[in-house]
C-alpha cells in the first residue's frame, strides 16, 4: 500500500492533467461555438476564414492574444492588477474537480510491471477527480470566490468604469448566490447527500428535473446571473461602462478573464446536468458521451439566451433576484419538504 503511494499520486496528477487539457480545449471551442451560433441567430456566417468552417479560429485567437501589448495602468495597484485575472481563471477551473463526468473510467485494479495496483484507493478509477462528501458546497465555495477577480481587477485598474463594473458584479453575485444556493435544496432533500456522485446515482430511475421543475428554472437563471451573461451582463454593459471591470485589461490578462467567463458557462452547465438532468446516466451510449452531450446542450441554451434577450436594468436585476427568485426558492423548498413528508408516510 505505502510503496504504491508515489505511483497513485502520479496517476492522479495524470488524470487531473487529462481532464484539464480536455476542459481547456472545450473552453476554446465554446468560444467558437458562441460566435458561430450567434452568427446563425443574427443571419450571418460567424468566423469561417481560419481552417475549415473556422475550426482553427481559437488557435488564431490565442496566438493573437499572447502577442498583443500587455498594458498595466501606471496609476493602479500593480500586484492586484496582475492577480485579478489569475484569481478569476483559477476559481473558475477548480469547481470541475468535484463534478462527476463518467461512472467508472478505469478497472478496479491494474497490473503494471508485475505490480498489482489497487485503483479503488482515492477513487482513482472513478470518473471524477475528487468525490468530496461536501462536493456541492465545495463547488459553491469556489463559485463565490470567483467574484474577487473582477472586483479586485476593477479596483486595481484605477478607472471609474472598471470600479463601477466590479462593484456591480459584487452586488449581483451576493444577491444571486442566495437564489443559487436555495434552488438546489430541493435536490439535496431528494438525494439526501451533498456528494455529487451520490446525487447522480440518486437519479437512476428519474431525473430530478421531473420532481424539481421550478428548482431547475431558478437554478438555471441564477447560474446565468452568476456567470454574468446577457441578460445579466450589467458588469460589462458597453453603453454605460465601456467594458466594465476589464476596460483596462489587454493581451492574455484579458484572455484569462474571457477564459474564466466561458469556464463558468461550462461549469454551470455541467453542474446543472449533474443536479437536474441525471449527470452521466443514459441508455446505450457510454456515460461520458451523455455527460458531454447534456452539458453542451445547456451551453447552447446559454448562447441562445444571449442571442435572444436584451439586457436588464440594474434595478430590475436586483428586483428579480430579491423579490421574485428568493421567495420562489423558499416556496419550492417548502413544497418539496411537505410532499416528501407526505410520501414517506
Amino acid at each position: 500500500m505505502m510503496n504504491q503511494l508515489p505511483l497513485l499520486i502520479i496517476m492522479t496528477a495524470v488524470k487531473i492533467l487529462v481532464v484539464l487539457v480536455v476542459f481547456l480545449t472545450a473552453i476554446a471551442y465554446t468560444v467558437l461555438m458562441e460566435r458561430k451560433v450567434l452568427g446563425f441567430i443574427q443571419l450571418r456566417y460567424g468566423p469561417n476564414r481560419v481552417g475549415p468552417w473556422g475550426l482553427l479560429q481559437p488557435l488564431a485567437d490565442a496566438i493573437k492574444l499572447i502577442f498583443k501589448e500587455d498594458f498595466t495602468p501606471p496609476e493602479g495597484n500593480r500586484v492586484l492588477f496582475i492577480m485579478a485575472p489569475i484569481i478569476t481563471s483559477v476559481t473558475a477551473f477548480l469547481p470541475f474537480a468535484a463534478i462527476p463526468f463518467a461512472s467508472q473510467i478505469l478497472p478496479d485494479s491494474l497490473t503494471i510491471y508485475g505490480h498489482k495496483l489497487d485503483l479503488t484507493v482515492a477513487g482513482l478509477n472513478q470518473g471524477v477527480i475528487a468525490d468530496l462528501n461536501v462536493g456541492l458546497l465545495y463547488i459553491f465555495a469556489m463559485g463565490s470566490l470567483s467574484v474577487y477577480g473582477a472586483v479586485l481587477g476593477g479596483w486595481a485598474s484605477n478607472n471609474k468604469y472598471s470600479l463601477l463594473g466590479g462593484l456591480r458584479l459584487a452586488a449581483q453575485m451576493v444577491s444571486y448566490e442566495l437564489a443559487l444556493g436555495l434552488s438546489v435544496i430541493g435536490v439535496l432533500m431528494l438525494a439526501g447527500s451533498l456528494s455529487m456522485v451520490k446525487i447522480v446515482e440518486a437519479q437512476k430511475s428519474m431525473w430530478f428535473i421531473v420532481y424539481q421543475p421550478l428548482g431547475f428554472l431558478l437554478f438555471l437563471t441564477a447560474a446565468m446571473a452568476e456567470c454574468a451573461r446577457t441578460p445579466f451582463d450589467l458588469i460589462e454593459c458597453e453603453n454605460e461602462l465601456v467594458a466594465g471591470f476589464q476596460t483596462e485589461y489587454s493581451s492574455m490578462k484579458w484572455g484569462l478573464f474571457m477564459m474564466g467567463e466561458y469556464c463558468h458557462i461550462i461549469v454551470a452547465s455541467a453542474l446543472c446536468t449533474t443536479l437536474f438532468l441525471g449527470g452521466w446516466q443514459g441508455p446505450v451510449l457510454p456515460p461520458i458521451v451523455w455527460f458531454v452531450g447534456k452539458t453542451f446542450a445547456l451551453v447552447f441554451f446559454f448562447i441562445w439566451v444571449r442571442g435572444t434577450f436584451p439586457r436588464f436594468r440594474f434595478d430590475q436585476l436586483m428586483k428579480l433576484g430579491w423579490k421574485v427568485m428568493l421567495p420562489l426558492c423558499l416556496v419550492n423548498i417548502l413544497f418539496t419538504g411537505v410532499i416528501i413528508q407526505f410520501l414517506q408516510r
Partner: peptide, 24 residues
C-alpha cells in the same frame, strides 16, 4: 469538511465581498 466549506462560502465568499464593497 462542512464547517470548512461554510467558512469559505460565508466568510470568504460573502461577508468579505461586502467588506470590499464598502471599502471601495
Amino acid at each position: 469538511e462542512f464547517i470548512a466549506a461554510i467558512q469559505v462560502i460565508v466568510y470568504a465568499g460573502a461577508i468579505m465581498v461586502l467588506f470590499l464593497f464598502v471599502i471601495m
